[in-house]
């Protein structure tokens, strides 16, 4: 039997301990999301129940206040009254642009880095690693004043360009390691046949690189979707995306019941991520390990 199965025997104490640990972990990893999803259809008095936590499950107050055990009031309040749909649209736009531009710029650089054995290619990668370590907020504090001066603060294109740039170090590292796995003979023979380097890249390499490009694209998507710092500080109120919008709910939801708007918004923003992991689990696992396994 190969590898992992034989690490833990079929019936050993080690296996039992590991499985108990795994069960505890799985409960910790999933229950918070299920709990919040369930609770988002209740009223505040149930989800944040002072008397009895079981109220959140059976919805005692929800039945009293709305006549039904489930209510969509939180969703209606968030999406319509507080115009969460606008934030969702902005997020969609930002994420789409960031992912496509990141991939366009990143594949070019990643390919060149994988095909050059010069010293400067090595140093460029090390530089990118250092850039990868920079906390995003330190960079944002460098942008604000120049962006005010140039009058480009607050609009979506600015946030998109910044997110693409912040994304680059990670993108070129990942694509570089994927391109390394494509044999050099492929583009070299294309060039012998008369292709330029760019034609070889465009017509020969990219078609066999789709899996790597998709994986990298997923991570660009996640970075743009999950970002809080850049979008919270570089976008004005009208252009807010979902994550800063949710953060802004918190300051204003002291009124009774309005905190359920935030709960509904949180669930709404989490659903696309769940769908993404559901469909692209293999690519995400592959991407997270790409850096480690290949160097």
């Amino acid at each position: 039997m190969s590898g992992p199965v034989s690490v833990l025997g079929r019936r050993s104490r080690a296996r039992t301990v590991a499985l108990i640990f795994l069960t505890v972990w799985l409960i910790a990893a999933t229950v918070p999301f299920l709990w919040t999803l369930w609770g988002s259809f209740k009223v505040q008095a149930d989800f944040f129940s002072r008397e009895d936590w079981r109220n959140a499950i059976f919805g005692v107050n929800t039945i009293q206040q709305t006549g039904d055990a489930f209510t969509g009031d939180g969703y209606a309040g968030a999406w319509i009254e507080r115009e969460f749909w606008r934030a969702a649209l902005n997020t969609g736009l930002v994420v789409l642009c960031v992912t496509s531009v990141s991939l366009m710029v990143g594949t070019l650089a990643g390919y060149a880095l994988s095909r050059s054995s010069r010293q400067y290619a090595f140093w460029l990668l090390i530089g990118a690693l250092i850039f990868r370590a920079m906390p995003h907020i330190t960079l944002v504090s460098g942008y604000l004043l120049p962006f005010f001066e140039l009058n480009v603060w607050g609009v979506l294109p600015t946030a998109i360009v910044v997110l693409v740039a912040i994304n680059q170090p990670f993108t070129i590292w990942m694509l570089h390691s994927f391109f390394l796995s494509v044999p050099r003979d492929l583009d070299e023979s294309a060039m012998v046949d008369g292709c330029s380097q760019f034609q070889a890249f465009r017509l020969v390499i990219i078609p066999v690189m789709w899996p790597g490009v998709i994986t990298t694209g997923l991570f660009s998507f996640l970075l743009a979707y999950n970002d809080f710092v850049v979008t919270a500080l570089l976008l004005n109120q009208d252009n807010q995306t979902m994550v800063p919008k949710i953060a802004s709910f918190l300051g204003t939801v002291q009124t009774e019941g309005a905190i359920m708007y935030a709960v509904a918004a949180v669930v709404s923003a989490t659903v696309p991520l769940f769908v993404l992991v559901l469909f692209f689990q293999r690519q995400i696992v592959g991407g997270l390990t790409a850096g480690a396994v290949k160097g």
Binding site: M104, V105, G106, L108, A109, Y111, A112, L113, L124, G127, A128, F131, M134, T138, L139, V140, S141, G142, Y143, V161, V162, V164, A165, I166, Q168, P169, I172, Q197, F198, F201
Partner: peptide, 16 residues
């Protein structure tokens, strides 16, 4: 090949 990527990183990471 690397120019666009490097330009972005210089402008939005190194300059800041």
């Amino acid at each position: 090949f690397v120019a666009p990527s490097v330009a972005l990183m210089v402008l939005f990471i190194a300059l800041p």
